[in-house]
């Protein structure tokens, strides 16, 4: 077995609740479906909040959301992780390490990773590795830093968030963007799996970290225009470099971006001339799931991955931070 990282399996979990564009229109906050579809391109989002609660309270006090929420970041993360573990044909006891990214924890101690791991009966090491939206790239790149023999056979990575619990539903932009969800994946530094990691990258520009915030006792906030411009520009830059370094052919290979909004993704795919069938996304039906969006999209297309096909993940977001992963399908 060569020392090269592979993703063996993935899992996702979304709450059952849905926020349609019609519901947002009914909130009477200065938006409608036509505007939402043209500016953001999202039709529906998943939410852990009851619709009645959203309509009556607008979630003006996020502390109240916890009491009514039907899911938590932990419960979704646990479900996604359970599916990933089962998908790899493993038991929880096989997992040697768990890392987790969560921007909406129910508790800051113990860590989200430990609570999820404990809930699944995992006994290895567990801790949080966090950067919000670009977590997929961060986690893979973080693990790529390690000498292979220093990592256990199987590492569980999780990204989970219930950001609808931090949305002010009087804010027409935030209301339309966010959805809840979790994604998990099993990585091995030695065992082969369906996806081989060819390369990874992560970096940040903390000078602009105030552009996207979630106050612990408050709501999500962002400088929408600045973040949108940064997201498109940075993703295009990442893709240009990757196209050259990895000989990407968009007629064969696939792009997955940060699932922030469909219109922004369309700008990127138009710029790089990526055909629609090789652009995988889920934001239109799930909403922006923060760090879970890109890995969830990959998981939802798991059975489509072809041998020799490259899957390019380029993600951007809070921090401001960004990163990429280039996978190759192994045919396993």
């Amino acid at each position: 077995m060569s020392d090269q990282m592979h993703v063996l399996s993935m899992g996702v979990a979304f709450p059952e609740g849905r926020i349609s564009n019609q519901l947002i229109e009914e909130l009477d906050i200065g938006t409608n479906e036509e505007w939402i579809l043209s500016k953001i391109g999202i039709r529906e989002r998943r939410t852990s909040l009851p619709a009645d609660y959203i309509k009556s309270s607008r979630n003006e006090r996020p502390q109240e959301a916890v009491a009514v929420a039907q899911d938590t970041a932990e419960s979704l993360g646990k479900e996604a992780a359970r599916r990933a573990i089962e998908g790899a044909g493993l038991s929880p006891k096989d997992i040697g390490m768990v890392i987790c990214n969560c921007c909406t924890p129910e508790a800051s101690a113990p860590t989200e990773a430990l609570r999820i791991a404990k809930g699944l009966g995992i006994e290895g090491e567990a801790y949080d590795v966090f950067t919000a939206c670009p977590a997929f790239a961060l986690h893979v790149d973080y693990l790529a830093n390690f000498e292979a023999e220093e990592l256990p056979e199987y590492v569980l990575c999780i990204s989970t968030a219930v950001l609808t619990q931090n949305v002010n539903y009087n804010d027409r932009s935030a209301s339309a963007i966010w959805g809840d969800g979790a994604a998990a994946w099993i990585i091995s530094p030695r065992r082969p799996g369906r996806l081989k990691v060819l390369g990874s990258f992560f970096t940040a520009d903390p000078l602009r970290c105030d552009a996207v915030t979630v106050d612990t006792f408050g709501h999500f906030d962002q400088d929408g225009r600045a973040v949108r411009d940064f997201s498109v520009r940075q993703t295009v830059r990442l893709l240009r470099n990757i196209e050259q370094d990895f000989q990407i052919d968009w007629h064969r290979d696939v792009f997955i971006g940060h699932q922030a909004n469909r219109t922004m993704l369309a700008q990127i795919t138009n710029n790089r001339k990526i055909p629609e069938e090789n652009h995988w996304f889920n934001v239109t039906e799930i909403g922006n799931q923060a760090g879970a969006g890109a890995p969830a999209t990959l998981c939802m297309n798991w059975d489509k991955i072809q041998k020799g096909q490259k899957i390019v993940v380029a993600v951007v977001g809070a921090g401001l931070s960004w990163g990429s992963i280039v996978f190759e399908g192994t045919g396993i």
């Binding site: 921007c103 909406t104 924890p105 966090f130 950067t131 919000a132 931090n166 940040a204 903390p206 970290c209 105030d210 996207v212 915030t213 979630v214 106050d215 612990t216 999500f220 809070a318 921090g319 401001l320 931070s321």
Partner: peptide, 9 residues
């Protein structure tokens, strides 16, 4: 004080 961005950032 904020759950996003990270403390490091």
């Amino acid at each position: 004080r904020q759950t996003t961005p990270s403390e490091a950032q």
